[in-house]
């Protein structure tokens, strides 16, 4: 039970129950669809970007608790950030959820960037679930390059 609580922390369950910034963004300048064919998780990320700054970000879709909470918290953390900062968060988040806990090497600056996203550290102990946490981030990254035609997949 205790290692399950490392994965399903209260913050994650809360974002799963009440996702923030959920629903389409009519004024989106960028948008991408993400899909994990293995589990059927779907997410769409909408971005309003001006002068290299994310003025607004929303998502919709359906998926497991990890993917829903990850999407909800992405919108919380990235709203108002510069694209440069947002890319740094993406990089730190990727290392957070994929690293073996013994080799995880985050600087103080990384930790500050990640903020509440640090609750996803438990995901790295559940290799089958890493893709659930990263789907929305890959989708966000695809939206930046406006790759909106082909759905993004976490499967190669």
């Amino acid at each position: 039970m205790s290692d399950l609580r490392d994965l399903y922390q209260e913050v994650i369950l809360d974002h799963n129950r009440q996702p923030r910034n959920f629903g389409p963004l009519e004024t989106a300048s960028h948008k991408a669809d993400g899909y994990n064919p293995l589990c059927g998780d779907r997410v769409t990320v909408y971005l309003q970007i001006q002068d290299d700054r994310i003025d607004d970000v929303r998502f919709d879709g359906a998926g497991c608790a990890i993917s829903t909470a990850s999407a909800s918290m992405l919108t919380d953390v990235l709203k108002g950030r510069s694209l440069e900062e947002a890319r740094a968060v993406f990089d730190a988040f990727s290392r957070l959820v994929t690293a073996d806990s013994t080799e995880l090497n985050l600087s103080d600056a990384d930790r500050e960037l990640l903020g509440k996203l640090l609750v996803f550290q438990g995901v790295c102990e559940f290799p089958a679930r890493v893709k659930c946490a990263t789907l929305v981030w890959h989708t966000w990254s695809a939206a930046l390059s406006q790759e909106t035609d082909a759905p993004v997949s976490t499967e190669e």
Partner: peptide, 12 residues
């Protein structure tokens, strides 16, 4: 509870 979460918890 999404089935994928159920699968992980049952596995544990």
């Amino acid at each position: 509870v999404h089935p994928h979460d159920v699968g992980t918890i049952l596995d544990r």
